[in-house]
Amino acid sequence: MTSCHIAEEHIQKVAIFGGTHGNELTGVFLVKHWLENGAEIQRTGLEVKPFITNPRAVKKCTRYIDCDLNRIFDLENLGKKMSEDLPYEVRRAQEINHLFGPKDSEDSYDIIFDLHNTTSNMGCTLILEDSRNNFLIQMFHYIKTSLAPLPCYVYLIEHPSLKYATTRSIAKYPVGIEVGPQPQGVLRADILDQMRKMIKHALDFIHHFNEGKEFPPCAIEVYKIIEKVDYPRDENGEIAAIIHPNLQDQDWKPLHPGDPMFLTLDGKTIPLGGDCTVYPVFVNEAAYYEKKEAFAKTTKLTLNAKSIRCCLH
């Protein structure tokens, strides 16, 4: 018999989150649709729960009410004593943790798909938090293969000092899905179709896995975050240069030392320094102006996964 890495157990509980950011409308629209008619997301033997994560922000069509829901799922915020004085999103995070967690427990949901849009030209993107997770690498390989020839990129946010504390991190297997470009507060049919297909293929993978299909060893190309880059700023902290036209919409493309990065209003080009080629992502993302992030630098690498098969009882 072929030796293989056996994944822990079959997958039982899956959640699909929309509206973690209330103005990213593809996930909101799909989740609302699936709450009314969820036939397309159901798979035999699998509990799939669509869920609106930040209903107040969705109602106002804004990213958040008090603070970013997708950055506060750490033990400090989840452990705060519940009171009306807490920011709305912290209270909501505790409610979500109660419903789908608790985080880092045996009772937490197996998989959470968190649906997002970006204003950046990132196409279909899967966000991975753990480079050693054979199950998710296999799932992402399946999704990428199923979507081809449509490109699907994998963004690895594993980093020693950049801690995200994402909404989906309460699950055993957290999956971020990011599709763009799409303006905030807008629905685009092409973007919706791409996100819908990503979810379909992900659920198909889980179904095949649960039925005992063995997935042979595989490898995927990923883009691992190195650092986030702020806009150049003046002495008052105001933005002093904008994304250069040569960099705009060039997510995932190589940016070499000396290539144009920013452009000042008086026409001066600010190039990339250093001696390493990087791959920019979230270029000129609207939501990241407040976070002082013009783009993120990534490096390209390959992740390998062992063969996996479900432990059938």
Rank of each mutant, 00 (worst) to 15 (best):
H5K: 09
K268T: 12
H141I: 02
E106N: 13
E47S: 12
N23S: 09
C152V: 06
V14E: 01
W252D: 02
P232Y: 03
L192Y: 08
Q250W: 06
I65L: 11
L128W: 01
Y155K: 12
S120N: 01
K163G: 11
N121K: 09
N117V: 04
D266A: 09
K300I: 08
Y155S: 07
N246H: 11
K172V: 04
E235D: 07
D251G: 02
C218Y: 00
G79P: 12
E95A: 14
Y164S: 10
V283R: 01
R233S: 13
S108C: 13
N37V: 11
D230Y: 13
M261N: 03
N97H: 10
C152M: 07
E40R: 00
K268I: 15
P271F: 13
C4A: 07
E178A: 12
V90Q: 10
G79N: 12
G101P: 09
F215I: 06
E293H: 10
K197W: 09
I111T: 03
Q42K: 12
D266F: 04
D74M: 10
K49D: 12
Y142K: 00
H208Q: 13
H159W: 06
C61A: 13
L203C: 02
T299Y: 10
Y223R: 00
L126H: 01
E178V: 13
G274Q: 05
F17M: 12
P160Q: 12
M82F: 13
T26K: 01
L301H: 14
Y223K: 00
H5T: 12
K292T: 07
D204A: 03
F282I: 01
L99Y: 11
C311E: 14
N97A: 08
V28R: 08
P245W: 03
P87E: 11
I41D: 01
I170H: 10
R43L: 04
L128C: 04
E9L: 14
G258Y: 07
L126I: 05
E227F: 01
P102F: 07
I16L: 14
S131K: 07
R91C: 09
Y153R: 13
V14Y: 02
A241R: 01
Y288T: 14
S131M: 10
C152T: 07
P280V: 03
I112Y: 02
R56A: 15
F17G: 03
Q138K: 00
W252F: 13
N37I: 05
Y109A: 08
